[in-house]
């Protein structure tokens, strides 16, 4: 039982990371990952959407006829995103203005309909909830990593404009990683996002290879299995 849940978490955060492995939702990933705070904001909004949409879709999965499931999923996701958009408009207005069109565009993020179709519509609500949460956090992790990479290289800072998310107390959070830096525009422009994502995927593959080498894969020996029977 526990191992099932831990597998869901591991899949979401690392093994089937929506950004690094499934390569879904690239449009927001590449468009708003120019600073850490933008990435974190959109990542958390996407996580909320995934959690709600996965749970609701799992709860109604037995009442939705198979033929109309996709329109129903899209309706559910769109309603959830609308609510999140309105909430961000109310409480995080500065961030809402920066992220702009990319908040309503969460509806079209393929990883959300992907999880709904591939997982939530076939599983119990608690598992679907956990899946939404871990997939969302995995996506947020990717956005924040790419965002910090691009922010440090592009403008030499970290956590700039943190007050948009954490209130007035966070105005002093900005860290000047490289002082007296005139910036490297390419990292902030879209090509920088593609190059950065490519390098991060390469890094993830290196880590995976290292892990595999350290821990040889468990091979089931057929003879032993036969003897046990």
């Amino acid at each position: 039982m526990f191992s099932e849940y831990s597998k869901i978490v591991k899949d979401g955060l690392w093994l089937n990371n929506q950004a690094f492995v499934a390569l879904l939702g690239l449009c927001p990933l590449l468009a708003v990952s120019n600073t850490v705070i933008n990435g974190l904001g959109l990542g958390l909004a996407t996580t909320m959407t995934l959690v709600f949409s996965n749970t609701i879709i799992s709860l109604i999965r037995n009442f939705v006829p198979d033929e109309v499931r996709l329109p129903v999923f899209v309706l559910v996701i769109a309603s959830v995103v609308t609510m999140i958009e309105l909430a961000m408009n109310a409480w995080f207005f500065g961030l809402y203005k920066i992220l702009g069109i990319f908040i309503p565009l969460i509806v079209t993020n393929c990883s959300i309909i992907g999880r709904a179709e591939a997982y939530a519509s076939k599983q119990r609500a608690d598992k679907a909830f956990l899946d939404g949460l871990s997939m969302g956090l995995g996506f947020t992790f990717a956005l924040v990593t790419l965002g910090s990479l691009r922010e440090v290289i592009g403008s030499g800072t970290l956590f700039t404009k943190a007050e948009l998310m954490f209130g007035e107390a966070a105005t002093t959070w900005q860290i000047d990683v490289i002082t007296d830096y005139s910036g490297m525009l390419l990292a902030i422009l879209p090509p920088g996002a593609f190059i950065g994502l490519g390098l991060l995927i390469a890094l993830k593959n290196i880590i995976d290879t290292k892990i595999k080498q350290r821990k040889p894969a468990h091979i089931q020996i057929p003879i032993q299995a036969a003897q046990e029977q």
Binding site: S182, M184, L185, L186, A187, L189, P191
Partner: peptide
């Protein structure tokens, strides 16, 4: 092109 786009000045 990388340099021209990144460091126009």
């Amino acid at each position: 092109v990388f340099l021209l786009v990144s460091f126009p000045m």
